[in-house]
Each structure stands twice: as structure tokens, then as C-alpha cells.
């Protein structure tokens, strides 16, 4: 019975996702491609994904841009604000590797995964909306569906230890 409830929770959770988009100093290219996901042609909302931009209410953090020094602490704080279960999707070449700015003279502190844990990376400068949509639609439900079971096992391990 409890397992059924958990499965139901996971199913419902993976069908209603709120996202927050954070631009950590990118050139806007990725942000407008994410915005383009909301047009009829790509229509992210048909998969139950809503653009919310309130970290306290959202499940997924979409991070674009190389993280500038000014953003470093703020990004960590923003990540802590998002309630569990959460997923982070890094969109764009800058977020994946620092991109064109990660060279001598650039004031960026490297890719996003060195600052917060990242679950999916979408390379491209900027990636096409189809790629962004498919990344979110494939990765995020997979993480959320089994989360109740994973949490249960973690608690069990803690109790056993």
C-alpha cells in the first residue's frame, strides 16, 4: 500500500514541474531560446512544465551562462532555496564548460557543475529549443519518479547505521 502511494506520488510529481531560469551572466542567447520554448511550435507547457521563476516554488533550476564572480554565492543560495526533490539543468556551452569566456582575461568561475550539482547538460551556443525541451522532458521525470523510494532507502540506511 505504501509503495503504491509512493509510486502515485512520484507519478504526479513528474507530471507537474515548475522551472526557474537563472541567467548567471550569459549573453541572453540561451535565455531567449528557453523563452522560445513557450511558443506554440515547441510548447513546453503541454508536458506540464511551467515557467515560474520563483525558486521556493520550483522543482527545476535551469542555469545558463558562465558563472560570474558576482553570481557565485548567489547561485549557491538560490540552489538551497529550491525544495527537494530538485534537478538542475545547465543550458548552453557557457554553463557546461565556461564556453568562450573561460579563457585568459575572462572573469568567470568556471562551469556550473563546479558550484552546484548538475543533473543534465545541454551543449550548444545556443542550443535549439527542441534540444532544451527534450532534455527537460527526458531527464527530470526520471529523477522525480523514483525519488520517494530513494529517500526511503536513504532513511533506512541511516536508521540501520
Amino acid at each position: 500500500m505504501r509503495s503504491l502511494l509512493k509510486r502515485l506520488k512520484g507519478f504526479v510529481r513528474s507530471r507537474s514541474i515548475h522551472v526557474t531560469v537563472v541567467n548567471t551572466g550569459g549573453c541572453n542567447g540561451c535565455d531567449i531560446e528557453i523563452l522560445a520554448c513557450y511558443t506554440y511550435r515547441y510548447d513546453l507547457e503541454q508536458y506540464g512544465i511551467y515557467y515560474h521563476n520563483n525558486p521556493r516554488k520550483s522543482d527545476v533550476l535551469i542555469v545558463t551562462g558562465p558563472v560570474t564572480y558576482q553570481w557565485r554565492e548567489k547561485l549557491e543560495r538560490l540552489y538551497r532555496k529550491v525544495p527537494e526533490p530538485k534537478a538542475v539543468v545547465a543550458v548552453g556551452a557557457c554553463a557546461c564548460s565556461g564556453g568562450i569566456f573561460n579563457q585568459e582575461g575572462g572573469r568567470v568561475c568556471g562551469p556550473v557543475r563546479e558550484i552546484i550539482p548538475v543533473d543534465a547538460e545541454v551543449p550548444g551556443c545556443p542550443p535549439r529549443p527542441e534540444e532544451i525541451v527534450s532534455a527537460i522532458v527526458e531527464v527530470v521525470p526520471r529523477l522525480f519518479r523514483a525519488w520517494e523510494f530513494r529517500r526511503g532507502s536513504e532513511h533506512g540506511a541511516e536508521a540501520g547505521g
Partner: peptide, 12 residues
């Protein structure tokens, strides 16, 4: 000031 990446410096 959140977006400063130092583009002018990289270009040099």
C-alpha cells in the same frame, strides 16, 4: 554588475 565577464579584456 551581475553580468560582467570581461569581454573587452579577453578580446585584447
Amino acid at each position: 554588475g551581475y553580468c560582467h565577464r570581461g569581454i573587452e579584456r579577453i578580446m585584447e
